[in-house]
């Protein structure tokens, strides 16, 4: 076997003879995907952004020089004149006399919280519906999917606004609203993927081996259908941050106006947009960077997990 030459495979090209199976260390599929991921520059940038975002959120009290609600510098503020960046206040002071930098730092916590909770709620409910439809098929599938279609027929943000308005102004209602919008997306995605996998030969093989239906669904169909869900998850996180900011901008977030939140900061900056445009740009930039991080990772994951790229 020593003379065996390892020839790299060319997708769609000639030698589909990638590696000699007996001459290679075992590797798990997940680890392989991770290895491909860290070799993608786009993914590395995305992961760095996310890392910064998460670290800032966790260590906000240590990083922020002041409390986000401390308005001790109100005396420095005059209508139409807000102190810009200085050594003491890196990003200046807002119209209510608070340190903008500290508010941005603390805002990361809020955004991450909203994003993660909304994603978790939406994904869990969506996945449950998707599994239900995808595993049982038949009338269960029809009923679930009609329900999902109805949810999907309402534009996302409008739907979120309606839900948030119904539940009243609170952080919880924002999170629920964003979650609800994402439920049908996850349900549809997973169900479609599962239906496709259910027709695969290996499922037929498992059936012919007498494997029980639930084992087939949970051990074969579901794991093989999950890749797009993971990708969708990261993209949803990005979207949830933007949506949360949007809802806050529309005044549908928590009732406490002093809570540091990027979307609300954007709303507040609206009033002083002509005199202090930077007050809108800082939170805007924060939102964009956080969302960008998750989007980059999501897109790279899509490629890394794609079996077509796997060798």
């Amino acid at each position: 076997m020593s003379v065996n030459e390892v020839v790299a495979g060319e997708p769609g090209g000639p030698a589909p003879a990638p590696t000699e199976a007996a001459a290679r260390p075992p590797s798990s599929l997940g680890r392989e995907a991770l290895r491909r991921l860290v070799r993608t520059p786009m993914a590395v940038v995305g992961m760095a952004l996310i890392a910064v975002f998460v670290l800032v959120a966790i260590f906000a009290p240590l990083i922020a020089p002041y409390s986000p609600t401390d308005n001790s510098w109100l005396d420095q503020v005059r209508p139409g004149q807000y102190p810009g960046p200085s050594a003491e206040h890196w990003l200046g002071i807002d119209p209510l006399g608070r340190d903008v930098f500290s508010r941005i730092i603390y805002g990361a916590r809020q955004s991450l919280l909203i994003g993660v909770v909304a994603l978790a709620l939406g994904a869990v409910a969506g996945i449950a519906l998707g599994v239900l439809a995808g595993a049982f098929g038949g009338w269960v599938d029809t009923v679930v999917m009609r329900f999902v279609d109805i949810m999907l027929s309402v534009p996302g943000l409008l739907f979120a606004i309606a839900v948030a308005a119904m539940l009243g102004q609170s952080l919880t209602s924002v999170m629920i609203a964003i979650a609800v919008v994402n439920v049908p997306i996850f349900a549809r995605l997973l169900r479609g993927e599962m239906l496709g996998q259910r027709g695969a030969d290996y499922v037929l093989a498992a059936r012919s081996l007498g494997i029980s239906r639930s084992a087939i669904v949970f051990r074969h169909v579901l794991p093989n259908s999950f890749t797009p869900v993971i990708v969708q998850g990261t993209l949803t996180l990005a979207l949830a941050i933007v949506e949360a900011a949007g809802l806050a901008f529309l005044g549908l977030s928590g009732s406490d106006p002093s809570a540091p939140e990027w979307g609300r900061m954007l709303t507040d900056a609206q009033e002083t947009l002509t005199s202090a445009p930077m007050l809108a740009i800082y939170p805007g930039l924060a939102i964009v960077l956080a969302a960008l991080g998750f989007t980059l990772v999501g897109e790279s994951l899509r490629e890394a997990l794609d079996p077509k790229f796997r060798r």
């Binding site: 030969d201 290996y202 037929l204 093989a205 012919s208 007498g210 794991p223």
Partner: peptide, 24 residues
């Protein structure tokens, strides 16, 4: 009962890649 009987007869498929679970 059918599941139990399945051990008596098995299937070999055409496409060996498609008939093996890629994650197994």
């Amino acid at each position: 009962k059918m599941r139990a009987v399945r051990r008596q007869f098995q299937m070999v498929f055409q496409d060996p890649m498609a008939s093996l679970d890629p994650r197994q």
